Amino acid sequence: MKPLGPIPPAGRAEVRIVAASPETARQVAETLRRCYATTEQRSYPAGSDGGTRLHLTVDTTRPTHPARSWLASGRSSGGNQPQADEV
């Protein structure tokens, strides 16, 4: 597994969205923007399959709207281990 970059400051999270289409990735990014302040997204090709990868920074110290209860609770939906292809 490749090492991750530097850890973001407290209250911020680096988010990577990988989707088959740019529109799907943008929809997910827009959902995050409805809850939290974010940086401008950066878009990259996701590989030879033609997908899209978006990067953005989320500032959880500046909510834009109340987060949904499952988001605010911080509960995980499953395993806490990184995916094999996470970089």
Score class of each variant (00 low, 15 high):
37 A>R: 13
24 T>W: 14
67 A>R: 01
57 T>A: 01
20 A>L: 09
3 P>N: 11
48 S>K: 12
25 A>M: 06
8 P>N: 15
57 T>D: 04
81 Q>R: 02
70 W>T: 12
74 G>H: 01
72 A>M: 08
63 P>W: 15
11 G>S: 14
64 T>W: 14
76 S>A: 04
74 G>N: 03
18 V>P: 08
59 D>I: 05
20 A>D: 11
29 A>V: 10
53 R>C: 00
1 M>Q: 14
28 V>T: 12
62 R>Q: 13
7 I>K: 14
16 R>C: 03
48 S>A: 15
10 A>M: 15
84 A>K: 12
84 A>D: 09
4 L>H: 09
87 V>F: 11
16 R>T: 03
59 D>Q: 02
38 T>Y: 03
16 R>L: 04
39 T>F: 11
6 P>L: 05
71 L>A: 11
28 V>I: 11
27 Q>N: 10
7 I>Y: 15
17 I>A: 07
24 T>G: 08
63 P>G: 04
54 L>A: 10
46 A>M: 00
18 V>M: 09
5 G>T: 09
48 S>C: 10
33 R>W: 10
77 S>F: 03
7 I>M: 15
51 G>E: 04
86 E>H: 05
32 L>D: 05
40 E>L: 06
10 A>I: 15
87 V>G: 13
82 P>R: 05
11 G>H: 15
81 Q>Y: 00
28 V>R: 10
81 Q>G: 02
25 A>Q: 02
46 A>Q: 01
51 G>S: 07
33 R>T: 06
73 S>P: 01
36 Y>E: 02
60 T>G: 11
78 G>I: 04
25 A>S: 08
75 R>P: 05
26 R>T: 11
37 A>I: 11
58 V>H: 00
61 T>D: 15
39 T>D: 06
78 G>Q: 03
48 S>V: 13
20 A>P: 06
62 R>V: 09
77 S>M: 00
71 L>V: 13
83 Q>K: 13
9 P>I: 11
44 Y>V: 04
4 L>S: 12
26 R>D: 12
23 E>F: 10
29 A>P: 12
2 K>G: 11
40 E>D: 06
13 A>T: 14
73 S>V: 04
44 Y>M: 01
82 P>Y: 00
37 A>F: 13
23 E>S: 09
22 P>R: 09
39 T>Y: 10
78 G>T: 07
58 V>F: 01
7 I>Q: 14
64 T>S: 14
43 S>M: 13
1 M>H: 14
4 L>G: 12
74 G>V: 01
85 D>W: 08
10 A>G: 15
